[in-house]
């Protein structure tokens, strides 16, 4: 049994009478490639928000590498190695990718509060940012204002910003959301090419992608874990077919 990178223990969250997360227990082993699937409104993004600290659970605990982080703010969790991307682009529209990723690198290095130093003087940080962008094939677009970038590139920048925090655990909320089918493969190639030490959990609707990239699948329905298992087990599960695969469009 490998070490657990991130876990949710009995996590629950409700807004009034609406239960968006019910007693959720998840263990992500180090280096995992887990997929989180479920019909719309199942609480997938809510679960990511709970793990990253955007939402505070009513009950339960989130632990990161054994440390209880339930009470920590999102930025403090990022500093401990838990990063995420957003389903809807949450980028710095007026900055270019180089500036945005350099900012993220500066924040990680703890030099973003230096107001007396020229930004161009931080050679290491800038080169690191450019390296991340190049790896994600954004090197040639790094001087273009983010809002002018093609949509697919913006999705890659989402991942680049998360990688700049040097995460140990990365939660990807539909990394290819809104990207045409032909291009979504490209984004998942990038995801698949990430370091093996990095623990990954991703939300995805495209079952081909899920079965191709995930080693383990968690099915969420109505804010609770319906079932989980290997792709083969999930594919063979008649219950999953009924609640998700069979009754909903996919692919």
């Amino acid at each position: 049994m490998s070490a657990v990178a991130l876990s949710a223990r009995g996590v629950s969250k409700s807004f009034g009478s609406l239960n968006v997360a019910r007693d959720i227990n998840i263990d992500l082993p180090v280096g995992a490639r887990y997929a989180l699937i479920g019909p719309n409104g199942a609480g997938k993004t809510t679960l990511i928000n709970l793990m990253t600290g955007l939402l505070v659970p009513n009950a339960g605990a989130i632990t990161l590498a054994g440390e209880d982080v339930t009470a920590l703010k999102p930025q403090a969790r990022v500093k401990r190695g838990l990063a995420r991307t957003f389903q809807i682009n949450t980028l710095f529209a007026g900055l270019n990718p180089l500036e945005a990723v350099t900012l993220a690198v500066c924040e990680r290095r703890g030099i973003a509060d230096r107001f007396w130093q020229n930004i161009a003087g931080n050679k290491d940080a800038i080169e690191e940012a450019y390296e991340i962008l190049s790896k994600l094939k954004l090197g040639d677009a790094c001087y273009q204002t983010t809002r002018e970038l093609p949509y697919g590139r913006q999705r890659l920048l989402e991942i680049a910003l998360a990688l700049a925090t040097r995460p140990k655990v990365l939660l990807l909320d539909e990394p290819a959301a809104g990207v045409p089918h032909e291009e979504s493969g490209e984004i998942f190639e990038v995801v698949a090419g990430l370091s093996d030490d990095l623990t990954l959990l991703f939300i995805e609707h495209d079952m081909h992608v899920v079965f191709r990239f995930a080693t383990h699948i968690i099915v969420l329905v109505g804010g609770a874990i319906f079932t989980q298992g290997s792709p083969a087990e999930i594919a063979a599960d008649p219950g999953v077919r009924e609640v998700y695969l069979g009754t909903r469009k996919h692919g």
Binding site: T52, G53, K73, P74, Q75, V78, K79, A83, R84, F86, T90, L91, F92, A93, G94, L95, E99, A100, T102, L103, A104, C106, E107, R108, I111, A112, D113, R114, F115, W116, Q117, N118, I119, A120, N122, A125, L161, A162, A164, T165
Partner: peptide, 27 residues
Amino acid sequence: RIINSPFGLALRGIRENVVRMPAIGAD
């Protein structure tokens, strides 16, 4: 000097997207 510093870049980050800032570890 301040505007052209890492701190100045962080300020522009806050202006451009205050929601993203905590997600890159910024306070």
